[in-house]
Simulated assay, not measured.
Amino acid sequence: MTLYELCQRDVICISTGANLGKVDDLSFDENTACIENLVLYGRLKLFGLLGREEDTLIPWKDIRKIGSDVILVETKTIVPVRKKKFLFMI
């Protein structure tokens, strides 16, 4: 399976049945090169003009099944990640 194929799948929380979104990225441990988290980017605010909501990290150990069209996760530790804000000088 490639990262592209993984990003085509919806992430579904088993306990609530909520669709958390699609996988946008993965985070790796620098020392062991093991996958640590699935990263789901936050939703756009006002068509992206006001930025995005916080990203969500889902620990790799919380994945229960990767199916042909969904990824089932059982997690209570959905961690929002604050993005760094950049100031642009014009």
Rank of each mutant, 00 (worst) to 15 (best):
M89I: 14
L20H: 02
E5Y: 10
I66M: 03
F88I: 11
V79L: 15
L38Y: 01
V73F: 06
S15N: 14
G17T: 03
K61I: 13
L49T: 15
R9E: 06
E53C: 10
C13F: 08
E30I: 09
K85I: 02
L6V: 03
F47C: 12
N31F: 11
F86M: 05
I71A: 03
K22T: 10
E53S: 14
G67W: 08
G51M: 09
I35A: 06
K61W: 11
V79G: 01
F86D: 06
I14Q: 13
K76E: 11
L40M: 12
E53G: 12
D25H: 12
M1H: 02
C7I: 05
M1E: 02
T77R: 12
I63H: 00
G67L: 08
Y41F: 12
I63V: 10
D25Q: 09
K45L: 13
P80R: 01
C7P: 03
G51N: 12
R9K: 15
W60Q: 01
A33S: 14
I14C: 10
M1N: 05
L38E: 02
I66L: 01
I58V: 15
L50P: 02
G67V: 03
L6F: 03
F88G: 13
P59E: 06
I90T: 15
E53L: 12
L3N: 07
T32L: 04
T77N: 11
G21W: 02
E54G: 06
A33R: 11
V73Q: 00
D29Q: 05
W60R: 05
T75P: 03
I66C: 04
I71S: 01
I71P: 00
L50M: 15
T2C: 07
E5L: 11
L44Y: 12
D69V: 01
K83E: 00
V11M: 04
L44R: 13
G48W: 10
V39K: 14
